[in-house]
C-alpha cells in the first residue's frame, strides 16, 4: 500500500468510526464545488518525521461531524464552536492513526494543538490544484486532506 492509499484508508476508517460519515477518495475534478463557508484545520507533528496535516471541509460537513459526535438530532442544537471543535478532533485522531500506520508503533511524535486557519474559496481552489492534496466524497460532502512531510 503506498502513502496515498494508507492516508485514504485511515481517513475513511476514522470518518466512519468516529463521526459515522461514509465515503471514499474521489477525483478532485469530480468533487462538488465548495460554494459556502469552509473550515480549514491544521495540526503539526514532530518526531522521526516532521510535517503537518491539513483538512478543509465545508461548514455543513463539519456540522454533520459535530451532530454525529454528540448524538444530537440536528445542527440547530449545536453551538457555533462545536463544528470547529469536531473537525479539529477528527484531524487529531486522523494524524495519530496515520503516523502509526506510516512509522509504526515504536517512535514517539509530539503533536501540535489543532488550529483553525484562514479558509475561503481561494484557499479551497489552491488546495484543489495541489497534486499532494487528496479529495474525498462523504455523503455528497467534499473534503480535502493534505499530509505534508518535511523530512
Amino acid at each position: 500500500m503506498n502513502k496515498q492509499e494508507t492516508i485514504s484508508k485511515v481517513f475513511c476508517e476514522i470518518m466512519e468510526n468516529t463521526v459515522f460519515m461514509f465515503g471514499d477518495e474521489e477525483d478532485k475534478a469530480d468533487l462538488a464545488e465548495a460554494t459556502g463557508e469552509t473550515i480549514k484545520t491544521e495540526i503539526g507533528f514532530n518526531g522521526p518525521i516532521k510535517g503537518s496535516l491539513t483538512i478543509i471541509a465545508p461548514i455543513s460537513a463539519c456540522q454533520e461531524m459535530a451532530v454525529n459526535l454528540l448524538g444530537v438530532a440536528t445542527e440547530d442544537e449545536l453551538t457555533s464552536e462545536q463544528p470547529i471543535d469536531a473537525v479539529k478532533e477528527v484531524a487529531n485522531i486522523v494524524i495519530g492513526n496515520i503516523l502509526t500506520e506510516i512509522a509504526g508503533t515504536e517512535p514517539v511524535f509530539d503533536l501540535t494543538i489543532p488550529e483553525v486557519v484562514a479558509s475561503n474559496k481561494e484557499e479551497w481552489d489552491k488546495m484543489i490544484d495541489d497534486d499532494n492534496v487528496i479529495g474525498f466524497d462523504f455523503d455528497d460532502e467534499a473534503i480535502l486532506l493534505d499530509l505534508k512531510i518535511i523530512d
Binding site: N92, I93, I95, G96, N97, L99, T100, T105, E106, P107, V108, F109, L111
Partner: peptide
Amino acid sequence: VSTEGSTTRIEQ
C-alpha cells in the same frame, strides 16, 4: 485518552 499510538509513549 489520546490519539497517540506509540507503545514507547504508552510505556513512558
